[in-house]
């Protein structure tokens, strides 16, 4: 449990806020201070739409410690519409229905908690895109 660290980056986790390189326009998530493409230090905040498609996925049967309760769980690399990949859990979907290139959208969900009285960690997950 690292409350200060979780608090420090919660904006990015709740709202999918990354960075845009002012020099070359590359979008990055999570935020960086040096551009991955052109090494410029000129960055500004960028709010991602939360829309993307599945780039790859996996169902984990040997969990990370804080995720024992919801094992097995599905993780995915999501290719965001604005360019970058983000790694996250999938929700509201059966494993058998997941496939590469499936459209997904970001939602904020409970990710893990430290028992009954500990802190609860929320973060982005992705679900199949709802048709509207």
């Amino acid at each position: 449990m690292q409350i200060a660290k979780d608090w420090r980056i919660q904006r990015h986790r709740y709202s999918l806020i990354g960075t845009e390189c002012v020099s070359c326009g590359l979008h990055m998530f999570p935020p960086r201070e040096v551009c991955l493409q052109c090494t410029s230090h000129d960055m500004k905040e960028y709010y991602f739409s939360g829309n993307g498609v599945i780039y790859s996925f996996s169902q984990l049967f040997i969990p990370a410690l804080e995720h024992v309760e919801n094992t097995p769980y599905i993780i995915a690399l999501v290719s965001l519409d604005e360019g970058p990949l983000v790694v996250a859990q999938l929700t509201d979907v059966d494993y058998g229905d997941v496939e590469i290139n499936m459209p997904v959208e970001m939602v904020t969900r409970k990710l893990s908690s430290d028992g009954q009285k500990g802190i609860i960690r929320y973060a982005y997950k992705f679900r199949p895109k709802l048709l509207c």
Binding site: S56, L60, I62, H67, Y73, I75, V87, A123
Partner: peptide, 30 residues
Amino acid sequence: YDVMSVGSDNDWELFHGVTLSGIAGLIMRR
């Protein structure tokens, strides 16, 4: 597995339950 997985990007991978074997699973699928 958690101790081994902190060799990856802890805040943006392991935090989300993405272990070392999870990373390899994602790569293998692709």
